[in-house]
Write a protein that binds this DNA or RNA. Structure first.
Lengths: 144, 144
DNA sequence: TGATAATGTAACATTTAAAATTACATTAAA
DNA sequence: TTTAATGTAATTTTAAATGTTACATTATCA
């Protein structure tokens, strides 16, 4: 398996949509910002839409927008919306090995608890906070 | 980047070494159990050795053994020993995008805090505990 | 209402990092 | 001194993420 950068890309997308608040952003515009293909964006935004974080409008002048207030939209929500099956990858089971066969059962609860333990940290950071932090960085850069 | 199953494999290895406690296990024996190549095992065990979790003996009749008591050896230690650079992958930076350029700075502390939040959960599970749980499963299977 | 410009998604191609393999130097037992 | 193990570099293979093409659907607007 390969690790995707979906979570970080999704944060980027939400930040972008918040910065451009009020105007719909097309997958082409987002793709330029993230430096990827519009289809990749539409696939990723599809998951954010399914989770109710982003809204989409089809047709000319269509595009995407945040469907939650940036104060309420936090990183845990984004994580859940785009997370892959498992945080920790399991190797393929070796049917000839007792340990391998039972490994999933042995680690499942702990892995799940470990993942859930990130909830508090990620919940504590909103898109609004990141936007403000970004503004701060921009101001700093301007005053150099 | 691709997500490796190193963490789960490393747990498997430590469990195996504990189950076979007292006798050195060769990379070939471990490779058969994990269903992979001996070189893959030696590379992975190399990290566990660097972290002081496993000892190795070269030469004929050589092999690997746990160098900590299974009660003390916990999953957080194993995680730290074999962890990749980052838990959450970042896409390549787009120099033409303000958000992309600052994203690393924006998320770094939060990502680090999220990873650290798993410490308590993973620290709470030892190889000894997993071995006992495995014994329990084995007994259940035998009494079916 | 027809042309257009957007999303939604399936199917396929490409890329890239993990995993596997090969090779060989080093080590220590018998 | 032969042999069987580790240690590790270099290379090949593989598979999953990423990128692309294609096209149906949707909705705007002239």
């Amino acid at each position: 398996m390969r690790a995707s950068s979906n979570f970080t890309k999704a944060i980027h997308i939400c930040l972008f949509l918040n910065v451009k608040e009020g105007e719909l952003q097309s997958s082409a515009q987002l793709a330029e910002s993230v430096d990827t293909n519009p289809v990749v964006i539409r696939r990723l935004v599809g998951r954010l839409r399914n989770a109710g974080l982003v809204g989409s409008v089809a047709g000319p002048q269509g595009g995407f927008h945040l469907s939650q207030s940036p104060e309420d939209l936090n990183l845990w929500e984004i994580y859940l919306a785009v997370r892959e099956d498992e945080l920790f990858v399991r190797p393929k089971v070796n049917p000839d090995c007792d340990i391998s066969c039972n490994l999933e059962l042995l680690v499942h609860d702990t892995f799940q608890a470990a993942e859930m333990s990130m909830k508090t940290e990620l919940e504590g950071v909103s898109i609004q906070q990141l936007s403000e932090k970004l503004d701060g960085i921009r101001t700093q850069m301007a005053n150099l």
